[in-house]
Design a protein around this nucleic acid. Structure first.
Lengths: 106, 106
DNA sequence: TGGATAGTACGCAAAAGTTCGAACAAGCCG
DNA sequence: CGGCTTGTTCGAACTTTTGCGTACTATCCA
């Protein structure tokens, strides 16, 4: 298995990024990654099958939100912080900050 | 016709907002609203039919991104800046700023 | 009242997204 | 080598979204 391809920084589309973040499972994966920096597929605690999870990770990767690094039999995912910040300054921080907001109605 | 219902500020869902912003037509409507403050349906320059446009505006409204105010036979849309800022501080600004970024590959 | 304007609601078809299991590929370890 | 672990790919079923035309409601104006 070789390293999967990632879109170039310049070609990241805003609508595509929002689409990637519009699924609760994917949003939760992203917020999780913000805390641990690097995480492999099987360490995610999302109640979905292996193949579904793999699909979501692919969506995130193809939208340019995450990078995947191969290490042995595992794939370590991380956020493309620098690239996102270069292309859309402040966006990722705002997203992560918003996701940390309590969802309560006060 | 009476004023359509809008979700309460506290019940705004982040994933729902991203979903609303994930469609190019809706994202363009939002960025347009950021410039003119208030705009009615028929003033939008989106190449879509009236009914489709109405559908997109409904999605934006139900996600809590916009408000609709009735004035005569027209509906004036505007961004829910204050509410969004209260619930997800800085998010809308980051989104609008990102949308203003040139899409070139430099 | 009658007509024009502005937008919504409904029903439909096409396209896209979600989810899973099964089969496959690739690297590790005994 | 053979089996275990990790993850991808494929096909299928199902749901959601998108886009349109038509029909409808509501408001304004002559």
């Amino acid at each position: 298995m070789r390293t999967p391809s990632h879109p170039a920084t310049e070609s990241l589309q805003l609508a595509g990024i929002f689409h990637a973040l519009s699924d609760p499972a994917r949003l939760s994966i992203v917020t999780g990654l913000a805390e641990v920096e690097e995480q492999c597929c099987s360490d995610l605690d999302v109640p979905l099958s292996k193949s579904t999870l793999s699909h979501h990770l692919k969506v995130l990767r193809e939208a340019g939100v995450t990078t995947t690094r191969v290490e042995g039999t595992r794939r370590l995912m991380s956020l493309r912080r620098d690239d996102l910040d270069l292309r859309f300054p402040g966006l990722l921080d705002a997203v992560l900050n918003a996701a940390r907001e309590p969802a309560d109605a006060h």
